[in-house]
Amino acid sequence: MNIELVKCHGSGNDFFIIDEINHDYQFTEEQRVELSRAICNRDSELGSDGILFVLKSEVADGMMRMFNPDGSEASMCGNGLRCVARYVCELLDKEAAIIETMKANLKVNKEGDIFPKIPTYKVEISPVSFQLSDLPLQLDQPALLNEKIPQLTEEVDFFALAVPNPHLVAIVEKEQVESNLQKTISEYVNGPNELFPDGVNVSFVKPLKTNAIYVRTFERGVGFTNACGTAMSASSLVTCLAGINENGQEIQVYNNGGKVNCVVHEQDSSYSIDLIGNATYEYKVDLQIEWGAINEFTCSNKIEFTEEKRQYEKLQSHAIEFISEWL
């Protein structure tokens, strides 16, 4: 079987797009899991943080399904959604579109470049819930807003929220960013534990300057990642709740993969977040697989998007310099 892949990334969070709008691949659910485990494997010829399956939708311009390297399916992926937004908008020759995801139909649109010559898209991150049952987080209380979880640590306070992926967010100091605390907590809550039966994304957030923050995320099913779109969105919202930033104002969010901008919106006690950042193509390639021996896949006809990669490297350099100056 031959499958066309597009390697892309949002903030260094990299994926393969598989187009099921123009191709009748007819994958079973088991085959989606097999594909994810095989081609996301960093020890293989390919490797990525996930697969973005782009499908037809009866209620939107396209549908996104995102699978992690371990074969699990994520309910949302903000960095991946930007890549899908670009793919669908270019496919349909549109500036704006609606993308169906597991929990919501979300607005996306092309934006002015976040950095010179970098394709930039704005995507809606919603719904937002603070109900612990929506993560789920098993504590004897309805919500957790800037409070300690004694079972984890007495050193930091946490916010718990679903956007709709589950997130545990702490606003920290430089010393905590540089310590092993986040790794220890993240590995515990994503293994067998009494708090998070389905695991959780864990982010440490360090305010840098006015309207600028640094976010590092341990992503469930992945581990430490260059960036996580829903985590950057959740972290931006948390800084507004903590009075560090304000709703309606653009927040620059720096991460190990680069930067994005976020804007938090509140209406009738409900929140949504605009996530604005790059959607960069790295290469196209044809994948040849046999389902009985999927790990023995081969690749051919690789086409590099060299200029796009070079431009994003400039943004990364800028982000690294900014983080080094302010962290």
Rank of each mutant, 00 (worst) to 15 (best):
M1S: 13
N2F: 09
N2M: 11
L5W: 06
V6S: 13
V6T: 15
G10N: 09
G10Y: 09
G10D: 11
S11M: 05
G12W: 07
N13Y: 04
D14S: 14
F16K: 04
N22W: 00
H23T: 03
Q26Y: 09
Q26V: 00
T28H: 07
E30R: 12
Q31S: 14
Q31E: 15
Q31N: 10
E34G: 07
R37F: 03
A38T: 10
I39T: 11
D43E: 12
S44E: 03
I51T: 04
F53W: 00
F53Y: 13
L55G: 07
K56V: 01
G62M: 02
G62H: 00
M63T: 05
M63D: 00
M64H: 04
N68G: 11
D70R: 10
E73R: 05
M76Q: 12
R86I: 11
Y87H: 12
E90G: 10
D93I: 03
K94Q: 14
E95H: 06
A97E: 01
I98W: 13
I98Y: 13
I99V: 08
K103L: 02
K110P: 10
K110S: 03
I114E: 07
I114K: 07
F115S: 01
F115E: 10
Y121F: 13
Y121P: 05
K122A: 08
S129T: 07
S129G: 04
L132K: 01
L132H: 09
L132Q: 03
S133F: 02
L135G: 05
P136H: 10
Q138I: 09
A143E: 11
E147A: 12
I149L: 09
I149K: 13
T153I: 02
E154R: 01
E154I: 00
H167Y: 04
H167M: 03
L168F: 06
A170G: 01
A170P: 03
I171Y: 11
I171K: 10
E173S: 12
E173D: 15
K174W: 05
E175T: 13
Q176P: 06
E178T: 12
S186A: 15
E187C: 00
N190F: 01
N190W: 00
P192F: 02
P192A: 14
P192V: 15
L195M: 03
S203M: 00
K206A: 12
P207I: 00
L208M: 15
L208A: 05
K209R: 12
T210C: 04
A212D: 11
R216T: 11
R216G: 00
F218L: 02
F218Q: 00
R220E: 10
V222P: 08
G223Y: 07
G223A: 06
N226R: 10
C240K: 05
G243V: 05
V253L: 02
N255L: 02
N256D: 15
K259D: 08
D268H: 14
S270Q: 13
S270M: 07
S270F: 06
G277C: 08
Y281I: 06
Y281F: 07
K284M: 06
K284H: 11
K284Y: 07
Q288L: 08
E290G: 13
W291I: 04
I294M: 12
S300C: 14
F305C: 08
F305T: 01
T306C: 01
R310W: 04
E313Q: 15
E313D: 14
K314L: 14
S317E: 12
A319M: 08
E321F: 04
E321Q: 15
I323Q: 02
W326T: 06
L327W: 02
L327Y: 09
